[in-house]
Design a protein around this nucleic acid. Structure first.
Length: 584
RNA sequence: GGGCAAUUAGCUCAGUUGGAUAGAGCGCAAGCCUCCGGAGCUUGAGGUCGCAGGUUCAAAUCCUGCAUUGCUCACCA
């Protein structure tokens, strides 16, 4: 669409130049600054140009200016202009636009969703970052969905993207589940208990909490264990390795199920030391200071921030210590132009502090670090609170959604027409989940409603998947009857239905939405776009038969349109990690 | 108490750099199957855009104040 808007901006600009009244002032802008809009109702036209801005220099009412401009541009090879109050509304030449767009999409296939906006940029994206003391929950699912999708979107914008995970495998919280296991675990294994191993580990983290409630010594023992861990205590390390393996194996299973992957994986246990060294170096260079008790601090009050502790008085590391080390190591490993941290908004302050500390440490790249902050995921009946046991476990939720999808399939009596019901249900569940999590702007808190997400009607992932399956079904039928259309030709002039035109305009704007989504780091531009596209398609094919037409030229032309829609849908689904289903 | 953010229909969410009558979905009400898959389509009701000022041709959008809610200011991560 941009291409056509630019063309018309120039045409409007040239026309305005011609009609400047003698008493008026010359135009002080260039064509690209002429405001172009999409009219509120399609029957008004395809592009709208408000004339308000020219009223002052022309010393004329916007309405009069619009009429004059439209008079000059009423009939052109590129389309027609007409005045509507203070607006000049343009209707594009449908036939030529239809041809250009549909042919381009079919020629490029899914490459149609590739733009060069960020070519040459190296962008590292960190997301997920699980703790190895418990399984993933709903909050992680939003994190994963955003991280994965943003990476896809940046890649489609031409950037070199490296997806990285950071395994939170050290620290006092890890010691807590270890302690509880040592105390209550009796050497059992997840295999013996027939449990998913990360859930097995998570149970001991819960066990620690209830133990610590009655026994004040529990917290102290955890601190002692952390010290032992950092000092390389053999028995502690042995236990740590064993339990970490369980947790990570389980978490990887969830990633696999939900289509999440990484290019490389960092471990806090391997980076915290370099963070500590960096802090000590900073101390030596008097960037930081030491308190009497031996703890090391940064004074950030000059920046309007607080004082921040970087190393405990017993010398052990904190969250921020290892974050410093990790950032430095990453930039050494893969010198990025930008680094995006996908982390919940509750850590906004932490990242302000982290980025500033890295600047204090004179890391020139620190200003290219960006915290992509996403809001909390709440439930309809309130917040998720681990203490109240209302945390939604990722695996359980996914299973719940899968079963709901399976039930729907059976209810619709589609089970005989689908090859693998379980697999299809899982793919619908994933589509439902990712669509729902990505449809809300990342920065905002959101309410997750499982039943609504899996609903097969309305603005949901499954509805999108259904539409994709319907298109696929029509194209399959066309293939089967191909011989009947041997002599038919594609004639774009035949696409005269308004709904066809709306769809073509949408196809035209896909690359622009992709650029926007990349610029704003916001996948919801894609979810909104895909919903618009599927809604228009549903309306269209409800009233306009594709295959059941006497005119075989019309059939093959509409088939071209459907192929183009399918390509764009597929590409859009890929960006959001929503599986495309041929049948469902 | 300080900082950051949010507030749009009963509920969940859109609303580009200020621009034509503020939009979807769910739910509610009423319709549509001799039709490529009815998981669909059509129509309707439902809004003082948190409140009060200001900026201007024009404000949900920009500015100021207030209210409410969330997050945060830990030797947790």
């Amino acid at each position: 669409m941009k291409k056509y808007i630019q063309k018309w901006q120039t045409l409007i600009y040239e026309t305005l130049q011609k009609i400047i009244p003698h008493s008026g002032e010359p135009l002080s802008i260039t064509p690209e600054f002429i405001i172009a809009e999409i009219p509120p109702r399609p029957e008004l036209g395809d592009i709208a140009f408000p004339m308000f801005l020219f009223a002052k220099p022309f010393k004329q009412a916007p309405k009069q200016i619009a009429e004059k401009v439209a008079g000059v541009l009423a009939q052109t090879p590129d389309g027609n202009a007409e005045a509507s109050g203070p607006y000049v509304n343009v209707k594009l030449n449908r036939e030529s636009v239809c041809r250009e767009v549909i042919e381009e999409i079919i020629k490029k296939q899914t490459g149609y969703g590739e733009v060069t906006e960020l070519e040459g940029h190296k962008i590292m994206v960190e997301f997920s970052c699980p703790n190895t003391n418990k399984p993933l929950h709903l909050g992680h699912l939003r994190n994963d969905a955003i991280g994965q999708s943003i990476s896809n979107i940046l890649k489609a914008n031409g950037a070199g993207v490296k997806k990285v995970n950071l395994i939170n495998d050290r620290g006092i919280h890890i010691c807590k589940s270890m302690l509880a296991y040592r105390k209550f675990g009796l050497g059992k294994t997840p295999g013996e208990m027939n449990m998913k191993p990360d859930h097995f580990v998570g149970n001991y983290y819960v066990a620690f909490s209830s133990w610590a409630k009655d026994d004040p010594k529990a917290e102290e023992q955890a601190r002692t264990m952390l010290k032992a861990w950092e000092n390389g205590d053999k028995e502690v390390l042995e236990l740590w390795k064993r339990m970490n393996r369980w947790a990570i194996d389980g978490i990887n299973e969830t990633y696999k199920r939900t289509g999440i992957s990484f290019d490389s994986c960092y471990y806090e246990s391997k980076t915290y030391m370099s963070g500590r060294e960096e802090v000590l170096r900073g101390l030596k260079e008097k960037i930081f200071y030491k308190k009497e008790d031996g703890s090391i601090w940064a004074d950030l009050t000059a920046k309007g921030l607080d004082h921040k502790v970087l190393l405990r008085d017993d010398g052990t590391s904190l969250y921020i210590t290892q974050d410093i080390g990790t950032a430095i190591q990453r930039h050494n490993d893969w010198p990025f132009d930008r680094m995006i941290y996908v982390v919940a908004s509750e850590q906004n302050y932490h990242f302000q502090v982290l980025f500033h500390i890295l600047k204090l440490l004179k890391k020139s790249w620190a200003e290219h670090l960006y915290h992509l902050s996403y809001g909390m995921v709440n439930l309809l009946h309130g917040k998720m609170k681990s203490r109240e046991g209302t945390v939604v476990d990722a695996d359980n939720l996914f299973e719940e959604l899968t079963l709901l999808a399976e039930k729907e399939i059976k209810q619709r009596e589609r089970d005989t027409k689908i090859d693998n019901i379980r697999e299809t249900s899982e793919r619908i569940a994933l589509g439902a989940l990712n669509y729902f999590l990505l449809a809300t702007t990342p920065g905002k808190d959101m309410v997750f409603i499982p039943e609504e997400s899996i609903s097969f009607t309305g603005n949901t992932g499954p509805y999108l998947q259904y539409t994709g399956a319907r298109i696929s079904s029509i194209l399959r039928k066309y293939d089967e009857r191909r011989d009947a259309f041997k002599n038919a030709e594609v004639v774009y002039k035949l696409l005269t239905v308004d709904e066809e035109w709306e769809i073509v305009k949408l196809l035209l704007s896909f690359p622009e939405q992709l650029i926007l989504a990349g610029k704003e780091l916001n996948p919801s531009y894609i979810t909104m776009y895909l919903y618009e596209l599927t809604k228009h398609f549903s309306r269209y094919y409800h009233d306009n038969p594709v295959l059941h037409n006497d005119d075989s030229h019309l059939v093959v032309t509409r088939i071209e349109l459907l192929k183009a829609i399918r390509i764009v849908l597929k590409r859009g689904f890929d960006l959001l990690n929503i599986p495309f289903l041929e049948k469902m």
